[in-house]
């Protein structure tokens, strides 16, 4: 369970988030939907403790991410906004590295690494160095890094960006599997189809605030529109910055 409680954050004079409140439940996929610059990445960075909120709390299993970032992160799998791979290491070495950083050791570590490589179906890549990987392959490696310690919460920042149809489908399958395993998944996106196809609940953000919250159907009913995209436009009040 991830709870965001009235978080405010401003950079110098620019207010990025103001009194943002929502929660993401276990065994559900929560989509954070908003146009570019709505504060999605800032919000996620506060949740994994990389940015400090000016006021308010982000709780992961009731652990305050700002006060105890290490403890909060040990329960998190993260797929950041920018993920760079270590191109001189093999996939297995990278995944093992992050497993070790999560405190996994010896047999447990090897087991977790083998397990995540199998789950993501990247055995054929495992002993190759990641230089020259395609975007889809890189996405899988980044996911493997995020999932190696079997986190109860998964945070993804626009995971489908740059992926082709096949890779996007694989990503969705993986997320659904995780959901079935009871993981709390929070992901940000500005791609409507993806949110509609995947999310149990949608939090629509605009200008650092929650503009609406509910299942995709509820949002459509709320606005009286048939398609989520139209509902979204109506909610945020403009059609600026929405990817088709």
């Amino acid at each position: 369970m991830i709870e965001v409680k009235s978080i405010s954050k401003s950079f110098k004079t620019v207010s990025a988030l103001s009194e943002l409140t929502f929660s993401a439940r276990d065994g559900e996929i929560t989509g954070l939907l908003g146009p570019n610059g709505a504060g999605k990445t800032t919000c996620l960075r506060i949740i994994y403790g990389l940015l400090r909120a000016d006021s308010g709390q982000a709780l992961i299993e009731s652990v305050d991410a700002n006060r105890y970032p290490l403890q909060a992160r040990s329960n998190l799998g993260i797929f950041p906004d920018k993920f760079g791979l270590y191109e001189r290491l093999t996939v297995r070495e990278q995944v093992r590295y992050f497993g070790e950083l999560h405190g996994l050791q010896a047999e447990q570590l090897e087991h977790s690494v083998d397990n995540v490589i199998e789950r993501l179906d990247i055995a054929s890549l495992a002993d190759r160095k990641s230089a020259g990987f395609s975007q889809g392959q890189r996405m899988k490696v980044a996911l493997a890094q995020a999932l190696v310690h079997n986190p109860k919460h998964l945070i993804l920042d626009e995971p489908s960006r740059g992926l082709d149809v096949m890779s996007t489908r694989i990503l969705r399958d993986i997320l659904r599997e995780q959901r079935a395993a009871g993981t709390c998944i929070l992901f940000s996106s500005h791609v409507m189809q993806e949110v509609a196809a995947l999310c149990d609940r949608v939090v629509v953000m605009a200008a650092g605030k929650v503009a609406a919250e509910g299942t995709p159907d509820e949002l459509c009913q709320l606005t009286g529109e048939a398609a989520l995209e139209d509902a979204f436009v109506k909610i945020i009040g403009s059609d600026e910055g929405i990817a088709a």
């Binding site: 994994y48 403790g49 990389l50 970032p69 290490l70 403890q71 992160r73 040990s74 998190l76 993260i78 950041p80 906004d81 920018k82 993920f83 760079g84 791979l85 270590y86 191109e87 992050f98 950083l101 999560h102 405190g103 980044a142 890094q145």
Partner: peptide, 14 residues
Amino acid sequence: ERNSLEFLLSQPVS
């Protein structure tokens, strides 16, 4: 530059 710093800093490591 390779964009791996953010992920490294997001690990449960001081």
